[in-house]
Nucleic acid binder design. Structure first.
Lengths: 215, 215
DNA sequence: CTTGAAAAAGTCAAGAGTGTTTGAAACAGG
DNA sequence: CCTGTTTCAAACACTCTTGACTTTTTCAAG
């Protein structure tokens, strides 16, 4: 009678399935989510339809809509999934001590790799769509904000010596963000060139200058 | 019998109408194109449908499809229109002698204004859609490339003293492009902050340093 | 005034996409 | 073995979009 399940599919997460008949359900859910992300990357937001997602996930559309009643539910789950994945990957990349002790270079290379990753592309597609879709924006914004905050915190940990004077740190942070994201957008349609590498190297020296000024 | 018009609507342009019964036709065409651009800005590429464009242009859909047989024809015309408009506006902005003789600042402010303009937003929407749409890409790429080349040439004219050694000039060019476009993308969903202005001021000083090094 | 072509408007069918509903198969617990 | 729940599948109804087709209006030329 009651349509509310007793335990599974409860609030949100993908993996709270505490050993029931199915954590297969969770498996299917991630399968769907990853198919959706693949579609975002390969087809863009506009052409990402429930039909295509289901086909790519190897499920019938009906089966898929059992797990996610509406398309927006899939997107919502994908945003959460992407947010978690991106954050984990970024932290992991930043956590390891650079072999040459060069934290600045590590930070730049790390974010540049991050921006070239399909996950960023998927996130980007959703971001662009969200500009003209209030419902999407409501879903995306919290995750986007959380990511930026987390990234900022992580960077602060990476450069503890910058913690005193935030002025230059913020400037370096913003500069890096804009340069690399600008390059990332360009990278969506063009190849990475020698000129791009030169920009990154230049950025690196400038960040180090900013750090020294602050010392 | 023959469906080929005698003179009007010939190849492409919008204004070759040499005083016939209608250069009203041309007027209507630009009306449609501008409506399409407005839709791109307000609704995004995905929701820009022929129905909405016609409504925004104040025409019946049938009338519109008389001027542009298919939707892609409208987009194609919009790309050409945007390309021409952006180029003209950019050149005009760069052409005027800065009151304080500060060409670098003029260039930065000029491109930053350019990126904040709706025309850039429309172009951007098409660009993103073109990533996963070969047909669109075929339309967009030539215009995009031409614009970048033109912009580069214009910049060279603006800084003739940099013409000798292209190394630093290119670096400054790329850096500026990436920073400002990165900021522009961010600006699509966020407001311009004091931090952004600081980045622009920093960029300005760095460009001048690059120029001095090259002297 | 007549005429014919272009502009504008309206109608139509086909297709795609979404979400709901209905039905079957798998499976745990009594 | 039976029952109720969960997963999966299929069919349906509805809307939206597109492009083709048909009709009306405008207007310059003869």
């Amino acid at each position: 009678m009651a349509t509310i399940p007793h335990e599974p599919l409860s609030p949100d997460a993908l993996s709270i399935g505490s050993g029931w008949q199915a954590q297969k359900s969770a498996s299917t859910r991630t399968q769907i989510i990853e198919a959706a992300i693949t579609c975002l990357v390969e087809l863009g937001y506009g052409r990402t339809t429930t039909t295509v997602i289901a086909k790519k996930a190897g499920l019938s559309r009906g089966a898929m809509l059992h797990h996610f009643p509406s398309k927006m539910d899939i997107i919502r789950a994908a945003v959460e999934y992407l947010h978690a994945k991106r954050l984990r990957a970024f932290r992991k990349a930043m956590a390891k001590e650079p072999t040459d002790g060069d934290h600045v270079r590590l930070g730049i290379e790390g974010y540049w790799s991050h921006v070239k990753h399909p996950w960023f592309v998927a996130f980007f597609e959703i971001s662009v769509a969200a500009r003209t879709d209030k419902e999407l924006a409501a879903i995306l914004f919290p995750a986007q904000e959380a990511f930026e905050r987390e990234w900022y915190e992580t960077s602060l940990e990476l450069f503890p010596e910058w913690k005193r004077k935030g002025e230059n740190f913020m400037l370096g942070f913003d500069l890096t963000r804009y340069v690399i994201e600008g390059m990332g957008i360009s990278f969506l349609t063009h190849k990475e060139t020698e000129r791009d590498k030169r920009v990154l190297r230049y950025l690196e020296t400038k960040l180090k200058e900013l750090a020294d000024e602050d010392r």
